[in-house]
């Protein structure tokens, strides 16, 4: 009887353990997921006090506070777009590492394509012109009938001398 009571007591003691571990695992996973989201969003924001660094990469005090703010807003249920708009409202478009696709910012998006197209067109034009010039030069350098006759005569003279 005593053994059975001890066994039941042991089972009762151990029973909550798996659930407890599961809850801890869930909490850790949720924490990691939240941290990943914080860094994902902060990678899109520029550190205000650094040079060419994102809020995610910077350890400046203001960047740490901005990451804390992002975390607080995520926990309050804000979306990524809402969080980015929050910072944009305070710092302007400057704070976004990826410029918005509107207004003057479109230049940043279109300029590389325009430059590439201009480069390809320019190079093609140059290559066509150079090839044409080379062909023309070859054509101009062609021998006329008098030259050919002189070469034939010279060759004939050579063969007679050798025989």
């Amino acid at each position: 009887m005593m053994r059975r009571v001890l066994l039941l007591a042991l089972i009762a003691l151990l029973a909550p353990l798996p659930t407890g571990f599961a809850q801890t695992d869930d909490t850790v996973a949720m924490g990691e997921q939240l941290e990943a989201r914080v860094f994902e969003i902060s990678r899109k924001l520029r550190c205000p006090t650094c040079v060419s660094e994102s809020v995610a990469d910077s350890n400046a005090g203001i960047s740490i506070e901005m990451r804390n703010e992002i975390q607080a807003q995520l926990q309050a249920g804000a979306s990524e777009a809402e969080i980015l708009a929050f910072f944009q409202d305070r710092y302007g478009d400057w704070i976004l590492l990826e410029p918005p696709r509107r207004g003057i910012h479109l230049v940043v998006w279109w300029l590389p394509g325009i430059a590439l197209a201009a480069g390809v067109i320019g190079l093609t034009t140059l290559m066509v012109r150079w090839t044409r010039n080379a062909q023309q030069a070859t054509h101009e350098a062609q021998a006329d009938d008098a030259d050919l006759a002189r070469v034939r005569a010279a060759l004939q003279g050579d063969s007679e001398t050798s025989s």
């Binding site: 205000p48 203001i62 506070e65 804390n68 305070r90 704070i95």
Partner: peptide, 13 residues
């Protein structure tokens, strides 16, 4: 202390 107001004012430094 938590620099929240500096964020609200869009402080660069």
């Amino acid at each position: 202390d938590d620099s929240r107001v500096s964020i609200d004012y869009g402080l660069f430094g």
